[in-house]
Design a protein around this nucleic acid. Structure first.
Lengths: 168, 168
DNA sequence: AAATATTTTCAAGAAATTTTGAAAGTTTAA
DNA sequence: TTAAACTTTCAAAATTTCTTGAAAATATTT
């Protein structure tokens, strides 16, 4: 396997796996492409490499920047914008955990809080059971939320610590 | 808010959130419906409650059973099959963690292992960088895998612990 | 300010996913 | 064994999501 074949392999695999992660195939491919590129790339480089349209590249690169795992690089003397991926795998993982917490866990907590059955008859066993289900969902979600929060916080303060070095 | 309104609320919210979790809206709704139902339900009950077709119910209930969070219940004297959701939120969480590990993490590990650049010139700095990226992805993925594995194992041994106590 | 380069938007088309419903397949009861 | 009850399948339709490409917007240079 040559270097280019290996890269192609990773990009394809990443794309396929992306869908099972709830990320669009193209977004995962753009990410993989930037991840294995030793230099930053322009929109046109990406269009060319993945054979996709300008609008598509623009949209996916922007999403990846929203996730905080790709950044814009401005080169002095160049008008075009260049993009590069975060290369530190631990940081990528942390960033994804942080965003998923925000995008998935927090909405669940908000939705659960909106459900109130104050009006209902609390002597009804069905009401009681429902209330208990909601209560345990809340506890589970907020527990997960707090656990993630503390991992993220710990990571942010132990930036140079030994935990981090395990993944280098 | 009445009990039914509250249930409806949860079902809708679960459905919306399902998509951000990479689960289809309907599957999430069927799950929520069974989760808040105090009794097990037939295919027809679910069709009626969510206003969806028979084939759709059949498919989603089967998927939920594959995830191990819904089970079939046979009632003596009844020809129809009834379905009920696992009610223990911790068990649901564990089951989902277990399945996601199998469906998402393990394919990543397999894909990474297939990438070999043995042929390539290892003095090329680009090859070296690529190899390092693959290596750290592998380490990260297998670390996450092992961590999940140990949580699952710990949970299962708790289960077997209390299971055997029943026969003391 | 005008010309040029580059990025962003977005309506329409393409592709992927989900849903339907009726037919085929199974199981159970008589 | 046959008929009725029920479940599963799957091709076609509906819906949702993704992609394109050209026009609009923005930024830079002359």
């Amino acid at each position: 396997m040559t270097l280019d074949e290996a890269k192609q392999h990773l990009i394809q695999a990443w794309g396929t796996l992306g869908s099972s992660w709830g990320v669009s195939r193209t977004m995962a491919q753009v990410h993989a492409l930037l991840l294995v590129s030793p230099v930053s790339m322009t929109t046109e480089d990406i269009m060319e490499a993945l054979q996709i349209s300008r609008g598509n590249v623009n949209m996916n690169v922007r999403d990846l920047m929203d996730w905080g795992i790709v950044r814009k690089v401005l080169k002095p003397g160049e008008r075009k914008e260049f993009f590069e991926a975060e290369k530190d795998v631990w940081k990528i993982g942390m960033q994804i955990a942080k965003e998923r917490k925000k995008r998935e866990l927090e909405p669940i907590l908000r939705a659960l809080d909106q459900i109130s059955i104050i009006e209902a008859d609390i002597t009804d066993p069905d009401v009681k059971q429902f209330a208990e289900t909601i209560e345990s969902l809340k506890k589970f979600a907020s527990n997960t939320d707090k656990t993630l929060e503390s991992i993220i916080k710990a990571d942010e303060s132990l930036f140079w610590g030994s935990f981090f070095k395990l993944f280098k």
